[in-house]
Each structure stands twice: as C-alpha cells, then as structure tokens.
Design a protein around this nucleic acid. Structure first.
Length: 598
RNA sequence: GGUCCCGUGGUGUAGCGGCCUAACACGCCUCCCUGUCAAGGAGGAGAUCGGCAGUUCGAAUCUGCUCGGGAUCGCCA
C-alpha cells in the first residue's frame, strides 16, 4: 500500500506515531521557510507541515507542489502548537511533520477548485466529472447511495429474497416509453431493445419458482429528460409470489423505514406511512403524488360560484368543467405584481388564468367586511356576500388569498397542484429534513385516451383489476379499480407496483378492453403468457426509483447529483462526448445505412 | 414539438449603443515571508464578449438564425 493511514481518521491519540499517507494537495500555504499542505483523501483532510529543520530535501521539493498533485508523505504525527489548532477540521488538533515527500502524479491547474462551496456551470462539472466527484459533497452522495443499496441487499437477503440478474438486451415491445434499441450483427436488420424495466422477466421468474426476487436494475427509456428523469435510471425491482397487496406494502414499508432510520438517522419521517386512495389524493391535492408535508388542500367550489352572474364560471361549469380553490394563508394583501405573477404561473401549467380574492388581514370577523377591504380580479361581480360565502366554504381567514381556477377537471388540478407545490416552497411550509411517505392506491385500471379514442392501461397491462370490479370489465372500464399502489414521498413518485394478473382468462379480457389483437398479444407478450399456461403462482411486486430516493435522502433537487456519470438534457455525456458517430466498418457489419430523414 | 431562463479571461460575475484599448473577485505565474488553515505582501500574465448573419458612422450591448446548458409543458405503460 502507498499509505497506512487515512488522512481524515488521524486524531490526537496518534501523536508521536510515524505514518505514511497519500492523497491530493487540496491547498498550499507557503510561508517561505514553512510550507503547509492540506492533504486530502476520501476520509478527509490532514495538515502536513514541511519544515527545513526536519527535512531540507522535502521542504525544497514541497515548494513545487500545486493543487491536485498526488503525493505520498511520511513523517511523525504531532499535537499542534498551542493556539494553532483548527476546530473546523476533524484532524485540527494534530499535524503531520513531513520527513519524506514523494510526488506520485502532478496535475495541471484544475478548471475549478475541488471544494464543496462551488458555483459553476453544470456542463463544466460534467466535462471534468472526475474532478467534480472528488469534492467531499459528491463523495458523500455516492457513499449515501452505496449505503442505501447495501441496506437493500442486507434487508432483502434477510427476508429470503434472491437477487437475480436479467438481460440488458431484450425485445422491443411497442407500448410504453420509447425503447433504446441495439442492432444485431448476427441478425441483420433486427434489433434488441434495452429494458424499460425487467417487468416481464421478473414475472417469469415468479413462474420459475424464485418466490422472492430483487434486483438493483438499470432501466432505459428514450424520452425527454427532466430534473428527476434520466434516460437510464436505477430501480430497486422486486417481485413476490403468493402475496396480496398488503404483503408487498408491508415489506417495502419495512425496508424503507430501515433505510431511513439506519442511513439518515437525523431525518424526521412518519411511521407508519400514510395511506390515501387515488381519488382522495386527486380531491385533496389535485395530483396522484401529493406532498403531504403541508396542507394547502384544494376544495371544489363549483356550486358556490355558479349562478351568481359570473360568466366565466357559468360557461365552464356548464361545459362539464369544475371550479376549485386553494387558500394561501397570509397572502391576502398580495400586490398586483404578485397576483399577476400567479396568474402568469397558472398559464404556464396549462390554465387560462385564475381568479383571486384577497382579504385584508385586520378584519375582525368575516361578518363585517367592507367593500374596500378585499381585492379581486373579478371585483365588480363579487358582492361582499359572495366573498363571505367563499371564505366560509374554503375555510379562508382574513389576511388569506383565495385562488379559484375553473376549467376541465384535469386542467384545474394541474394548475392548482402546481401552485400548491410552488407556494409550499415559497411560504416555507415544510422542513427540509422531513420525509413524508404516503401510499397511494385504488388507481383506476384504465384511462381514456382522447387522442386515440380508446382505453389505455393506467399503469401496465399486467396489473390486476380488483376482484369486485371484474363485473365492469366489459360494461364500464372506467369503473374498474386496480390492485395498484404507488409510494410517494414529498411530492415525488418513488415507485409503483401492483398485484399482477396470473389468470389467462382475465388477462385476455383486459387485452380486449385495450383493443389488442390476438397477433399483437402473441408477439408482444407470448413468452410471458406461455409461461402462465404452466402453473403461475399469484404474484405482485414493485419498482422503486433508487436515484430519486437517494436524491431525497441527500437533500438534492435533481438526480444528476446522485448519479456518478449522468447525461445532459439532450441525453449526451460531456465527459465521453457520447453519443458519437461510429466507424463505417461497424455500420457495414450491422447492415445499417442512413437515409436523409428530412 | 412548445414556452421560459442563461452563455463575457481558467471560474463566478459587472458592463446592456460611443466613456470598453472590457471592470471586479477568485484562480494562475514570479518574488518576499517559520504558525498558516479562504494565509499575508509586492508585481505580472490572461477574454474581441458561444457561433453566424444583419441593423448602425459605431455592437459585448439592438434584431434574426444557430449551437450549447438549465427549468418546464407535451412525452415518461
């Protein structure tokens, strides 16, 4: 070994010890005859002192040292001089008196300093990701990710789960997300697809008798990127035989509690997790992935605001729309600029606008509001009585701002939940160290696709309908609820799962609703369905986003921070400069040529 | 595919029609310095303002296109 001690681990009790350390020069403080080096390795920072009285040769050599040079130093640990201690440093009570210095690898001047307090363009960080990852913050995030994965392995192994690897080269199935595709050399003109998830493979593993399976699985989806979406992401994928919904939920909840308690002991979180149905979630929060750390719940107020002479509301609601509200506490005296900003924001998330009513904070009771004590975008249509009504119904108080959006339900919910998320942040309604886990269940099995005029699966085709809803399968698909459950935390969907269909007859009836023809079914799902013909145990499971979980636990707001080598928004990698052209010989071998697409 | 924000020495910013032969901080280089820890002091090098085209007597500054990064809607069973 080039070292026998880690820099950051050395404490006062090692005083007098002779040690060998190695690492990067993090900082250099040259006092002429005395040179201080902050030496950094994974464990932390150690102050090394080069003193000509101890070694003239090492001192001379140390004058050459610059940031990010890799060096090896040996010498004696000593307690620092009185008054020279540094309490900000774990090793601040001691220092290494360098006897021998060896330069293992010099460095160019780095494009940015390897420090936590860094404010630079992300592109530069990604180009020099090897330097970026040296920063203690990034080291900690990678360690956090490892700790989470480690706990998953331990916890699930203890529960008799077996980790099974599944292939990365599988078959393209056209539904779902866009596939990443790999040409086959041995079968010119044919392609593999990278898995969007190991869904069908793990179901086959259940038919194979694995009973309890898990995998830290890479999943690939060729769709547009977001702060919480990369083209390849990692899932904790798991599946269990002979289980009901309740069993999967209990297992995953136990695992997540264990992860949070062991790995982020300082975190505040709710135990047991909340449970809420899809319908209730939409009703209260306007989304199926609610941030339940704070209130700001939505209310439907169609009845209060119709037939009071306001055209906007009457016509929208007459056309099958609804009016819903959100109350922003303490925002009743928002300026014109602030309310304009909210209206503008509502348009960004698809709304046509919103109506606000702001009430002065110094009103004693709602009973004696004066005309000059409230402002509204619809002031001339809103009598004092209607304002009173709205405030009473929504539970708003003097000093609060009521926002109303009227449109088709989907738009209303989109707009208001976006406003809710934004205002939760802006009004500081939650604690950053808090994690609020909630199970959302009773999802509909199908959704109506307006564009294609057909039913599509809300989750995927293998999710089981609730037994009591089977009677609606042919008559009224909208009514069917599924054995589906999502795990949501702080407004992020961490994962979703379901009890699967293991009965061929029910599976066929579901395919019929979606309108799949027999041939489609055979080419897309034949392999799985064939396995079901030979005794398929009832089974169910989940896929859980590891990147998002680590992001949340690490207090980050995008998953690139917890992925060693992430891609940019255009799915390229600035470090490797991928994707790239390939050799024409490679293309020829694959039988691929290009046509001009435009 | 749409909308919005950003692009000035290595890094982060300022400058937003002539005062810019582009400013400041950090970093970098040279020299001085034995107790610093974002060391200090003195001096110095370094950008034609993402690219292209246009408007103008004159463009970092205005316009168009384009490239790159980010946020977001669509998309993501």
């Amino acid at each position: 070994m080039y070292k026998n001690t880690n820099c950051g681990d050395i404490t006062l009790d090692r005083a007098g010890d002779f040690v060998i350390v190695a690492g990067w020069v993090s900082r250099r403080r040259d006092h002429g005859n005395l040179i201080f080096i902050d030496l950094r390795d994974r464990s932390g920072i150690l102050q090394v002192v080069f003193n000509p009285k101890i070694s003239e040769e090492s001192h001379n050599l140390s004058e050459k040292l610059r940031n990010e040079w890799v060096i090896q130093v040996s010498g004696t640990i000593s307690k620092r001089k009185e008054g020279a201690e540094n309490d900000d440093l774990k090793t601040g009570q001691i220092e290494l008196n360098a006897k021998e210095l060896k330069i293992l690898s010099p460095s160019k001047t780095p494009p940015f300093e390897v420090i936590d307090d860094l404010n630079i363009d992300e592109l530069t960080r990604l180009k020099y990701r090897f330097l970026d990852l040296r920063r203690p913050k990034m080291q900690n995030l990678l360690k956090l990710r490892h700790n989470v994965t480690h706990e998953i392995w331990n916890y699930l192994s203890d529960k008799d789960f077996i980790q099974v690897e599944t292939p990365i080269l599988i078959k393209s199935t056209p539904e779902g997300a866009r596939d990443y595709v790999v040409p086959s050399r041995l079968h010119p003109g044919q392609f593999y697809a990278l898995p969007q998830s190991p869904q069908q493979l793990k179901q086959i593993l259940m038919v194979s008798g694995i009973e309890k399976y898990f995998q830290i699985a890479h999943c690939f989806r060729d769709e547009d990127l977001r702060a919480d979406r990369q083209p390849e992401h990692t899932q904790l994928d798991l599946e269990m035989s002979y289980v009901h919904k309740k069993d999967v939920i209990e297992l995953v909840e136990g695992l997540f509690i264990s992860i949070v308690e062991k790995i982020v002991p300082s975190a505040k979180f709710n135990k047991p997790f909340l449970h809420i149905s899809y319908e209730e979630s939409m009703e209260r929060f306007g989304t199926d992935k609610p941030d339940t750390r704070y209130g700001l719940e939505l209310r439907t107020i169609s009845e209060i605001v119709t037939n009071i002479g306001i055209n906007v509301f009457d016509s929208v609601i007459g056309n099958g729309g609804i009016a819903r509200s959100i109350v922003l506490p303490g925002c009743g005296e928002y300026t014109r600029k602030q309310t304009d900003e909210l209206i503008n924001f509502s348009k960004l998330s698809g709304g046509k606008g919103l109506v606000f009513i702001g009430l002065d904070k110094n009103i004693q009771s709602l009973d004696n509001i004066q005309d000059d004590q409230y402002r509204s975008s619809l002031k001339k249509f809103l009598s004092v009585d209607i304002v009173k009504n709205i405030y009473n119904f929504t539970g708003a108080k003097p000093g609060d701002l009521v926002l109303i959006v009227a449109d088709q339900a989907k738009v209303v919910n989109n707009v208001l939940s976006a406003i809710r998320t934004r205002m939760g942040k802006e009004l500081n309604l939650f604690d950053n160290n808090e994690f609020n886990f909630v199970w959302v269940d009773d999802f509909p099995l199908f959704e109506w696709d307006d564009l294609e005029s057909k039913w599509v699966p809300a989750h995927h085709v293998f999710s089981s309908p609730k037994e009591e809803d089977l009677i609606y399968l042919e008559k009224d698909p909208a009514k069917i609820k599924a054995e589906l459950y999502d795990l949501v935390c702080n407004g992020y969907e961490l994962g979703s799962g379901s009890i699967r269909i293991h009965d061929r007859d029910i599976q066929t009836r579901v395919f019929n609703v979606i309108g799949y023809q027999k041939e489609d079914i055979d080419t897309r799902f034949g392999h799985l369905l064939r396995s079901f013909d030979y005794g398929a145990p009832p089974h169910g499971g989940m896929g859980l986003g590891l990147d998002r979980l680590v992001m949340l636990l690490g207090g980050q707001d995008n998953i690139r921070e917890v992925i060693a080598f992430p891609k940019t928004q255009t799915a390229s990698d600035p470090l490797f400069d991928s994707p790239s052209n390939i050799d024409s010989n490679q293309l020829r071998e694959l039988g691929i040529s290009f046509t001009d697409l435009d």
